[in-house]
């Protein structure tokens, strides 16, 4: 009963089957999607991220934000994603063509971020929230990212307009103020760039009632 050759063939063919089915075929179907230009408005979507947001995306990767936040909206009728305002339409493959790597995510320990740029457009909210999530979302289990900020002495001209406004228990010692480092700025630019408000032919926006 030396069926070694048969065994080897079986081992190779079984994996080859799904390699074709789940790697080659999806690459055939989705691997060369192009951005769409709306013929009425001339808007091209999606677009590559501008420089600062692209740097922020690298931080998002390096800090592992994608382990608690998804970036995919499930279609109407499957889950409550749209009802929660996480997106205006379900996500489609074309939304991700410029993403390296893709941050679909697998866990919603925190909310989905596909549309966070529309839901929270304010720099102030993002800075405050990143510095310590408790400032804006009491009871959140998101870790603070205070290491993206630095303490500076208040200058002779009084408090800087760039400083993060923090009240109560979160405020720094008198005479000091909290400034975002460039990294914090980049991360916030990235988060603000996340929007799902542009329609695609395969994913129209629902009509307003």
């Amino acid at each position: 009963m030396n069926y070694g050759p048969l065994l080897f063939l079986g081992i190779l063919f079984t994996l080859a089957s799904s390699w074709f089915g789940l790697v080659v075929m999806p690459n055939q179907q989705l691997g060369s999607l192009q951005p769409n230009m709306d013929t009425n408005t001339g808007v091209v979507f999606p677009q590559p991220l501008p420089g600062e947001a692209a740097q922020g995306r690298e931080l998002y990767r390096s800090l592992g934000c994608n382990y608690c936040h998804t970036q995919q909206v499930r279609r109407e009728g499957f889950g409550s994603d749209i009802a929660r305002g996480w997106g205006k339409r379900g996500s489609v493959a074309r939304d991700y063509i410029y993403d390296r790597p893709v941050f679909l995510g697998s866990s919603r320990t925190g909310p989905d971020l596909t549309n966070i740029g529309e839901r929270q457009p304010s720099y102030e909210w993002h800075y405050s929230h990143l510095y310590n999530p408790q400032t804006t979302s009491k009871g959140s289990i998101m870790p603070p990212y205070a290491f993206l900020f630095e303490l500076r002495r208040v200058g002779p001209d009084g408090p800087s307009t760039n400083a993060v406004k923090l009240g109560g228990e979160f405020a720094p010692e008198p005479g000091w103020e909290v400034h975002p480092k460039p990294e914090a700025k980049q991360l916030v630019e990235y988060l603000r760039s996340l929007r799902s408000s542009v329609a695609l032919p395969e994913a129209p926006l629902p009509k307003l009632e």
């Binding site: 994996l15 799904s18 790697v23 690459n27 989705l30 790597p101 893709v102 679909l104």
Partner: peptide, 26 residues
């Protein structure tokens, strides 16, 4: 086989967009 395919299509020369997620979960 799994490791080399995944490294190639996800890390070394990433496939386009959502295909990465497909290869990722394969």
């Amino acid at each position: 086989w799994l490791y080399s395919t995944a490294q190639l299509l996800l890390v070394m020369d990433p496939a386009r967009g959502a295909v990465q997620a497909a290869v990722n979960w394969w």
